[in-house]
Structures are given as structure tokens and as C-alpha cells.
């Protein structure tokens, strides 16, 4: 058994991947596209929090909120200006891949290439006998839990949640029943990318920040939603959990081989069950 610290690191990574994967699945189920820029929204969220604390001097929770709102606005702009004007899912996907370069370049120009570190916003640790957990890590986990619960309530018990679920199943029928699919997809794009930004923001004090931190969470959450089943929200959460723990726990035992194990596991899962663990059967 690896020490508890490794499991906690796994949990922290799972939280980030889960939040991002959840947003990606939301966007995918309504817009029908894979948003490859999700990792860059994560990176921008981390930067917004960094500058909110160091330059503007507002408290961490408000900075987090600002990250979510600003990036959500940015993603809605992206949707309005670019995604709406490109036809074909394939080409929208490629355009979002182009946006990866755009945002990374813009971030390096504006924020600089060097690593930035944010001091622990919540100092102090909880001593649990043989190991200790910092408040910052507890904050990440509890924040993710709260977000998940809010999203669960929103999707299952509110009118907008009903509209989202209906549109994911049958866009045409939903629009016949008075759902404005256009407005809904803007909302969902905002929520999904805002989630990515908040994931980046909440985790920002734990890791270094630079314009290229978005890549790995992006790949991981992409793998998470694919092994969980494309379009399945439960699948996104479970996939995020699996990959987060694999990434740290297997890495403890196998060091560099862990990534090979991880990718091979993804390949095997997809070959055996192409629709993913929780996906509906394809065709």
C-alpha cells in the first residue's frame, strides 16, 4: 500500500479531472463537440486567481468566483464568434485545437513564460496521526464536492436542468417544447468552461502556474470522459476518479511506467467496451 499522502494527491488530481471532465461532458452533450480548449480555460482560471490575489488583492473565494465568471464570459464569446460560424463537428474540433495555440500564446505574451507560485492561501495542516493534510487540500476536495452537489441539484431538480437533459436527449423535441437551444448552449458552454476555470483556480495554490499547465489536465479529462462513456455525466466523474488515482498511486509503484499503464488501460477499456464504462451502446 502506498502511503496516505499518495492517496490524497490522487484525490486532489481526481478532483481537478472530475470537475473538468464534467464540464466537457456537459458541453459535449448539448453542443455535440469536444472542446479541446478546455485545458486552456483551466490555465486561464489559475491565472485569474493568481492575479486576483497578488495584484488586486481580493480574497481567494472571490478570486475563484471571478475566474469562473470571466472564463465563462470568454467561452461564451468563443462560442458566439467562432464555434457558431463553423459548420461540421470535425472542423469545430480542429478550430478549438487552433485555439489551444492561440490562448497559450496569448497567455505567454500577457503573463510571461516563467513559473509562478501562489503562496498557500489557507495555511495550516490537520494532523491525523501518521500523516497530515493541509487545509488547502481539504478545501480542494470540499469545493469539488460542493460543486458536484450543486450541479447534481441543478441538473435534476431545476427547470434549466430539465432543459439541459431534454436537449441532450432530443434537441429538436426540446426546442418544440419551448427550450431555446441556442440560449441553452450558450449557458452550458459558460458553465462547462467556468467549471474548468474554477478547477484551475482552486488547485492553483498547490502547483506552479505557467501558460502550459492546461495540457495534461486536458488530456486526462478527455481520457476520463472517453473511458467513462462519452455523454455520460456519471462516467465523467468515475473516469476522473480512476485516472486521478491511477496517475498517483500507480506512479508510486511503477514511476514512469504508470503513464504507459494508464494509456494502455484506456486502450483496453475502449477495445473491450467502445462505448465506455457508463455510455449507452453505440449504434
Amino acid at each position: 500500500m502506498p502511503p496516505a499522502g499518495i492517496w490524497i494527491d490522487g484525490l486532489i488530481q481526481s478532483c481537478a479531472y472530475m470537475t473538468m471532465a464534467f464540464g466537457m461532458v456537459l458541453v459535449f452533450s448539448i453542443l455535440g463537440i469536444l472542446n479541446w480548449t478546455h485545458g486552456q480555460f483551466y490555465m486561464l482560471g489559475a491565472f485569474v486567481v493568481y492575479y486576483a490575489i497578488t495584484a488586486v488583492g481580493i480574497p481567494f473565494p472571490l478570486g475563484l468566483l471571478a475566474a469562473g465568471v470571466l472564463v465563462a464570459g470568454l467561452s461564451i464569446l468563443v462560442k458566439k464568434i467562432i464555434i457558431d460560424h463553423i459548420t461540421g463537428d470535425l472542423y469545430v474540433g480542429v478550430a478549438t485545437m487552433g485555439l489551444i495555440f492561440f490562448f497559450e500564446g496569448a497567455a505567454s505574451m500577457i503573463f510571461g513564460m516563467q513559473d509562478k507560485g501562489l503562496a498557500r492561501v489557507l495555511p495550516g495542516v490537520v494532523d491525523l496521526g501518521s500523516f497530515s493534510v493541509s487545509y488547502q487540500k481539504i478545501a480542494v476536495v470540499s469545493f469539488t464536492l460542493v460543486i458536484m452537489i450543486i450541479l447534481f441539484i441543478m441538473l435534476n431538480f431545476t427547470r434549466i436542468g430539465l432543459a439541459i437533459r431534454a436537449t441532450a436527449q432530443q434537441p429538436d423535441a426540446a426546442s418544440l417544447y419551448g427550450v431555446s437551444v441556442e440560449r441553452l448552449s450558450l449557458t452550458v458552454m459558460g458553465i462547462g468552461c467556468g467549471l474548468a476555470a474554477m478547477a484551475g483556480g482552486i488547485i492553483a495554490p498547490l502547483y506552479t502556474i505557467n501558460p502550459f499547465i492546461g495540457g495534461i489536465p486536458m488530456i486526462m479529462s478527455l481520457l476520463a470522459i472517453v473511458i467513462g462513456g462519452l455523454g455520460s455525466l456519471t462516467g465523467a466523474i468515475v473516469g476522473g476518479l480512476i485516472l486521478g488515482f491511477l496517475n498517483s498511486v500507480v506512479a508510486y509503484h511503477l514511476s514512469y511506467l504508470s503513464e504507459v499503464v494508464l494509456f494502455m488501460l484506456v486502450v483496453i477499456i475502449l477495445l473491450v467496451r467502445p462505448q465506455g464504462l457508463f455510455g449507452a451502446s453505440v449504434k
Partner: peptide, 24 residues
Amino acid sequence: DIYGIQQLLFGAVVVLVLLFLPKG
């Protein structure tokens, strides 16, 4: 000389081509 401008312009060109020369 400016760091990052090459990626920014590269991404912008890709998106512009997809916008104005649609459908591949």
C-alpha cells in the same frame, strides 16, 4: 522576438482559415 506571439498568430490563422474557408 516577442514570446508567445508565434503561437497566438498560428492559432489565429488556423481559426480564420476554418472560419472563412469552411468545410475543410
